[in-house]
Design a binder for these strands. Structure first.
Length: 435
RNA sequence: GGAGAGGUGGCCGAGAGGCUAAAGGCGCUGGUUUGCUAAACCAGUGUAGGGGAAACUCUACCGGGGGUUCGAAUCCCCCCCUCUCCGCCA
């Protein structure tokens, strides 16, 4: 949520910034409503002050005093006027509150200008793209051949684009999750949380998924409970409406969650296999920090996510999203894209964003400065550390051998009961300790 | 699911129609005292919004929403949450 005061003070800057993001939505109406709401607030406050003065007089002058009946009548008259004033105020306020939620965050000055994905800037690349003496296969062919991916059965029980990992595939998922959690908790200083996967409307609104993304979310039979599209939602909302002592900042959290997304309308070759699925697993990093540190913290958050890719020996590049490609709530965002040799494509596996105070204002997450004084809004950041399906796609495609095996990077071995590679397996085959 | 008890400031906790932004305590900030540390004493210390150059002032807020009343943290109704006990269940 944008700061209304700032919007009022520098509407031209905000208008320009929102245009860069490709959405000025209802900015003009918001500005107009802000003025009328403030006027209406002033009027009703004055009426209430008047009323309070009268009732106080009544209390102190004795309820049976000579003027009491007259006073009582004046208060009743005032109440009539107050009621209309309050109703006007309420309806204007409601519209304002509703519209403000549709205004996206404004981009940071360091964000490259651009209208869409073509305007994104590659900041750096890491690792060598593997070369093969044969034509590397995409993961959907390999995975099915190896018996670790089973889209046909997944479709039968859920529908298209739901993942089903079997045998060593399931072991790989579980191992990756633990590997990532261990790295972030023991080496990067994040505290792990195991969180609810269904959250209420307030939580979804707090991180900015609502109202804009409602049609992309799964709703439970209880219309107020949504399946989370990312662990960012429960993790960040852990702190909603709290005032955190400055000494406790930065708060660093990590959590594993499944993520659920309708991804309506997304079909085609770009969405084959594990490229885009309705349910996936993700280890999420979230930070709450002091405002002046948030951009440094963004860089270190990206580094923490990159570390996972480096240990997995997966070539990747870091992309700074341009103004037109930034998500609704982000002020700045880096995507990490991993190279998938079988598809000859870069696949997004992480989005690391600084939301500045946009989410914190919605959630009421503040900190109390050590030096005393008013509570201030924190800045919130998050990033995937990392999303699993495309990592698995890249591991399979980049690690494939001419024999139809998949070699795994060393840091993963202990998480896979010592296995160093994955190979074809039968329906009832368990995993052995030898690769 | 049933019964009971609760939800008040950063935290704990009193208050049971007007004298309450709300006692008291803790914490925090400043001061006095003090070989150091600690302690003691004194003072200050809620959030949000409006008006004002400022001093200051007005309004709202005691889980959420309605209602009664000239007036509600306090009375009534609905909902949410927490705790205890019982039931049910992976």
């Amino acid at each position: 949520m944008l700061d209304l005061r700032r919007l009022r003070q520098e509407p031209e800057r905000i208008r320009a910034a929102l245009q860069a993001k490709g959405s000025i939505a209802s900015l003009e109406r918001v500005l107009e409503l802000d003025a009328t709401v403030r006027k209406a607030t002033f009027d009703t406050d004055n009426l209430r002050a008047e009323k309070n003065a009268l009732t106080e007089k009544l209390a102190h002058g004795g309820l049976a005093g000579e003027g009491a009946a007259g006073l009582r009548q004046s208060v009743k008259d005032l109440n009539g006027r107050l009621k209309t004033a309050e109703e006007t105020l309420r309806s204007e306020k409601e519209e304002l509150d509703r519209l403000v939620l549709w205004l996206p965050n404004i981009p940071h000055e360091s964000v490259p200008l651009g209208g869409g994905p073509e305007g994104n800037v590659v900041v750096r690349t890491w690792g060598e793209q593997p070369s093969f003496a044969f034509t590397p296969a995409p993961h959907w062919d390999l995975g099915a051949a190896m018996g670790i991916l089973d889209p046909r059965r997944a479709a039968r029980i859920s529908g298209s684009n739901f993942p089903l990992f079997s045998g060593d595939g399931a072991l790989l998922v579980r191992g990756l999750i633990t590997f990532m959690l261990d790295l972030h908790t023991t080496e990067h200083g994040y505290r792990e949380h195991w969180v609810p996967y269904l959250v209420n409307r307030d939580a979804m609104t707090g991180t900015g998924q609502l109202p804009k993304m409602e049609e992309d979310m799964y709703v439970s039979a209880d219309p107020e409970l949504f399946l989370i599209p990312t662990g960012e939602v429960p993790l960040t909302n852990l702190w909603r409406e709290e005032i955190i002592p400055e000494e406790r900042l930065p708060v660093r959290m990590v959590g594993y969650t499944p993520c659920f997304r309708k991804e309506a309308g997304a079909y085609g070759k770009e969405t084959r296999g594990l490229n885009r699925v309705h349910q996936f697993d993700k280890v999420e990093l979230v930070k709450l920090v002091e405002p002046h540190q948030s951009y440094d913290e963004l860089e270190s958050l990206v580094a923490d996510a990159e570390e996972v890719l480096q240990r997995l020996e997966l070539p990747y590049r870091v992309v700074s999203l341009c103004t037109g490609d930034l998500s609704f709530s982000a002020a700045k965002c880096y995507d990490l894209e991993v190279w998938a040799a079988g598809q000859q494509r870069w696949l997004e596996v992480s989005s690391c964003s600084n939301f500045e105070d946009f989410q914190a204002r919605r959630m009421g997450i503040r900190y109390r400065p050590r030096a005393g004084g008013k509570p201030q809004l924190v800045h919130t950041l998050n990033g995937s550390g990392l999303a699993l399906p495309r990592i698995i796609a890249a591991l399979i495609e980049n690690g494939q051998t001419a024999e139809g095996m998949v070699q795994l990077p060393e840091p993963l071995w202990p998480y896979l009961r010592g296995r160093r590679s994955l190979g074809p397996q039968g329906e009832n085959q368990g995993s052995t300790t030898e690769g």
